[in-house]
Design a protein around this nucleic acid. Structure first.
Length: 489
RNA sequence: GGGAGAGUGAGCCAACCUGGUAUGCUGCCAGCUUUGGGAGCUGGUUAUCCCGGUUCAAAUCCGGGCUCUCCCA
């Protein structure tokens, strides 16, 4: 392929899905995609990274059913109002209508919290930190886009229950930390986690914090979110514990949802180039492709040597010896489109020198490496590639952050594909009118105040970056918040 | 959800306007041949999105549906 990612992201994205075989769109149900092995392998890898983080933060895995009782679904009023328009219902079994209908879960709360109500009795039952890997259904009314917005998508959801609000707040920071380790640390995808404005919260939450990354077309993509649920759900579902004074208390809750499909989409979009995907070394299904250069009569010798290299490397990397009956040029191109980070070429010439050719996907450079040195060269090249991808992604991301003092200046910079920080009257409910006005005029969205950066330890529930004597870019009244504004997916 | 465009073998496309035998390339299979950047030759292989209407006759015209893409929300 040869499409300019920055000039025409949609074409680039559609094409890469085809040439790298990420998903098949021919399933013919809107918003439902078939995820193909090359994508699924990396998605599995993302799950593994998150499993490790969940383990590190004392979360335990569980499985909750896909169907939710209608009664249970309606318990928390704001929650149900927020999700009901997108819920798919199961109403029949075979040719019989069911006595009651069940929701295909659009998110887990309403299925999980009735169980939590049974599980939580006293302080000794807390905290609960449980997560589930799986998928949910949301009958989106917005246009669907592969991996970016589907009516069924893969994710992880962690649902935590605490005795105190401060523990819940600490959990939000811990959730942000997991995002930093996986999305930035392992995949090299930079993001800002915002505290969303009050009118743009998760249905039923006190506050929502969400990680936005920047796609090549300048639109932001939310890849993970975590919510301070306060006591709304514990009251609705009766999640109570008996405190030290023998008084019943409602618990404090959080929920965390990294969107695995979207994280994958961001990884593909952020690192790919005009020739195809570039998969970060840690996430690559195949990290090293070995291409034997065969000539009539030497097949046995070359394949034997290539096999030895495969065996030697298999302890330190995911390796694939490509024995397909295709020309070397075809294989080079094929693996490059799929974004395999490293490639070894080995032919008779190399064997005579006791070396092999090591090619690096992102730089395109080839070098001769002694066969005895391959293991260390691979490890080093893989790490360097990961670091290069991360640092160039970070540089691009930061370069696309800007500030503006007026709506016009803001709109101009958003048109350049930037996220723009502006003074804004307030991110409380009353600010919604200003947000709507900006959206109508410039089709942009308020992302919120900065909670934390991908590369920073600091988390701020109340941003210290306050305007001093600045005016809201929308209404002109004194500004109380600095918010980032961008176009969103 | 609104607007626009599109749907023909596995993929891309021609024929559609002006109704009548569906074109080519790629892929795939077999054989030969070749392999250091998308090889070549020969043979084989599969198609008009769905439902209805008009007509002697529909890929083509009309109506409805479904799906995909783009723009907007």
């Amino acid at each position: 392929m040869n499409i300019d990612k920055y000039g025409n992201f949609s074409d680039w994205y559609n094409e890469i899905i085809k040439v790298a075989e990420l998903c098949d769109l021919r399933y013919n149900i809107k918003g439902f995609i078939v995820i193909m092995p090359w994508a699924m392998k990396s998605i599995d890898q993302i799950y593994k990274f998150y499993d490790a983080e969940m383990e590190r933060t004392s979360h335990l895995p569980a499985f909750f059913p896909s169907l939710i009782h209608e009664k249970s679904f309606g318990a928390e009023k704001e929650h149900v109002a927020g999700f009901v328009p997108e819920v798919l219902w199961v109403t029949e079994a075979g040719d019989k209508k069911l006595e009651e209908r069940y929701a295909l879960k659009p998110t887990g709360e309403a299925g999980i919290y009735p169980m939590y109500a049974l599980w939580v009795n006293g302080l000794s039952d807390l905290p609960i930190k449980i997560y589930q890997k799986g998928w949910v259904w949301r009958h989106e009314t917005k246009a669907t886009k592969p991996f970016i917005r589907g009516r069924e998508f893969l994710w992880i959801e962690a649902h935590d229950v605490f005795a105190t609000p401060s523990e819940a707040s600490a959990q939000v920071a811990e959730d942000a930390g997991m995002a930093k380790t996986v999305i930035w640390g392992k995949l090299g995808v930079p993001f800002i986690m915002f505290r969303r404005p009050q009118w743009d919260k998760f249905a039923g939450a006190d506050n929502t914090f969400a990680a936005d990354t920047l796609m090549p077309d300048g639109k932001v993509l939310q890849v993970a979110s975590t919510h301070l649920l306060g006591q709304h759900f514990s009251k609705a579902y009766g999640i109570k514990y008996t405190d030290a004074k023998n008084e019943p208390q409602f618990a404090w809750q959080t929920c965390y949802g990294p969107g695995v499909n979207r994280i994958y989409a961001a990884m593909v979009a952020v690192h790919g180039d005009n020739r195809g995907m570039v998969v970060p070394y840690d996430a690559a299904p195949i990290q090293v492709a070995i291409i034997p250069i065969l000539r009539k009569g030497n097949e046995g010798k070359v394949l034997a040597e290539a096999g030895k290299i495969e065996t030697a490397l298999s302890g330190i990397a995911r390796v694939k010896l490509d024995t397909r009956d295709q020309s070397p040029g075809f294989k080079f191109n094929d693996w490059e489109q799929r974004g395999v980070p490293l490639r070894i070429e080995i032919g008779e010439r190399d064997i005579a020198n006791g070396s092999a050719v090591l090619a690096v996907r992102d730089t395109g450079k080839k070098e001769n490496v002694k066969i005895a040195d391959l293991n260390s060269a691979i490890t080093k090249a893989g790490a360097e590639l990961g670091a290069r991808l991360a640092s160039s992604a970070s540089e691009r991301f930061l370069k696309n952050l800007d500030t503006a003092k007026s709506a016009d200046e803001m709109a101009r910079k958003i048109d350049e594909g930037k996220m723009v920080k502006v003074p804004f009257c307030t991110d409380a409910k009353e600010g919604e009118a200003c947000a709507k006005a900006l959206k109508e005029k410039h089709s942009c969205d308020i992302r919120g105040t900065v909670f934390t950066f991908f590369n920073s330890e600091k988390c701020e529930f109340e941003s210290s970056d306050k305007p001093h004597g600045e005016k809201c870019v929308s209404c002109g009244k004194p500004a109380n918040a600095h918010v980032y504004v961008a176009r969103q997916y």
